[in-house]
Amino acid sequence: MDIFIDQFFNIEIMRKSLPLLFKGLWMTLQLCSAVILLGLIGGLFVALGNMSERRWLRWISIAYTDLFRALPPLVLLIFIYAGLPFAGINISPFAAVVIAFLLNNSSYYAEVYRAGLISVAKGQWEAAQSTGLSPAQTLIHVVLPQAVRNILPDLLSNTVEVVKLTSLASVISLSELLYNAGMARSVTYNASPLVLAALFYLVLLWPLVRLVSHFQRRLAA
């Protein structure tokens, strides 16, 4: 039992690895902000393309969402990080992670948005446009607020997935939370830093997961 506690819950080692883990957490948060923010914006445009009256725009966005939802994000990441240099394009690990996960996640966000936009009655578009609002104004003031309210749990769920996804960045040695925890483990020959990292993820994600349930219940009511 002592060995178990020493190996996984060694407070002294946790304390020592804390600065490194905080650094990793900071990187994880930066990754998440970039991917979530750009994903929320990009996903909206992809969804709008998907619902466009122009056929070629529809086709492009359908191809986009199909392709990047079908490709495993890790494959995408390695392809972009290790493959692009051969094409003469050198990008930082951070950029590679953001691009790979953005392609993946904006596709998921797009599908969520699409469901939300469909859920708003056509009459709302018509009423708004009959009062002289432009299509963009109608979207921003009338349709999107209602759509987002309907899909809030799904948007949040997807956001939780993004945070978890960023741990894959450790594969290309980006010093985010999991990678730094792994570093601390290999230096100390002790798994406690990994347990601490898991705790960090839990603290980060548990409120979000709670919030998803809360919104789901409210929508069901």
């Binding site: 009459g123 009423a127 708004a128 009959s130 009062t131 209602q146």
Partner: peptide, 14 residues
Amino acid sequence: RLQIGMVFQGFHLY
């Protein structure tokens, strides 16, 4: 369209 008011069967208030 500002000059043409329209009232719908289903109201369509926001």
